[in-house]
């Protein structure tokens, strides 16, 4: 008998039992999950971060400069000692400055391309120059929904202005349709995850399906 699938199967059922009502078996499985996830995270961090960095990078490959970063990182714990707590601002300021610089260097390029892509030609044609009706309607809808969704968040002009009022109202519908599509995808994703569990229960554990 394979103990892994048996244990996994029983724990899956224990977690799903919450759908019926809260019960001690569910609580046991929940506590086990949190404990195992914490231990797993510790072991993974040790194996993939601490050990290779110290053993391979620093000791074996001589990257002693890594130790400087470790010292800077450790300084953050000075905040537990009121007299020297001010030192903890140095690693924090380094981290914030590094993060801000990094984001400002790299983030604008993909976003600018997105803005460029919003300026589209309404009439879509194929290679022979014939009008593609479906794509043209899509392009017009895209433009209308983009502008009206932006209008919904435009608070400088009062909604009494008919252009802004009707535009914002259409924008609200556009946002609701967008959120509806996102919600539909979320439902699909959650079903997929549950199916993964069912495939495990019926396949790996009970061997009822291949």
């Amino acid at each position: 008998m394979e103990w892994g699938p048996l244990l996994g199967g029983l724990l899956t059922l224990a977690i799903l039992s919450y759908l019926w009502k809260e019960n001690p078996v569910y609580r046991l499985a929940e506590h086990l999950f949190i404990a195992i996830a914490t231990s797993f995270s510790l072991v993974v961090n040790w194996d993939t971060l601490v050990k290779p960095t110290v053993q391979t990078d620093i000791l074996k490959n001589g990257r002693w400069d890594y130790a400087l970063a470790a010292i800077l990182g450790l300084l953050i714990y000075t905040r537990y000692f009121p007299k020297v707590a001010w030192i903890s601002r140095y690693p924090l300021s380094f981290w914030v400055g590094y993060g801000a610089g990094y984001v400002l260097s790299f983030s604008p390029a993909p976003l600018i391309k997105q803005i460029n892509d919003s300026f589209i030609k309404f009439a879509a044609t194929d290679k022979a120059g014939a009008l593609l009706v479906g794509s043209t309607i899509n392009n017009i809808l895209f433009f209308l929904m983009l502008i009206s969704a932006l209008m919904y968040f435009f608070f400088t002009v009062r909604r009494e202005n008919p252009l802004v009022g009707y535009g914002a109202s259409f924008g609200r519908w556009a946002i609701m349709i967008g959120l509806g599509a996102a919600f539909g995808n979320t439902v699909m994703a959650r079903i997929s995850l549950f199916l993964g569990r069912l495939q495990f229960l019926f396949g790996d554990w009970l061997h009822l399906v291949k």
Binding site: P110, Q114, D117, A181, A182, N185, T186, A189, S192
Partner: peptide, 17 residues
Amino acid sequence: CTAVSAPGEMPFVRSGQ
């Protein structure tokens, strides 16, 4: 990507990214 993330990623296909 997961289905949850897909709507947010679709504009990048349209833009060719």
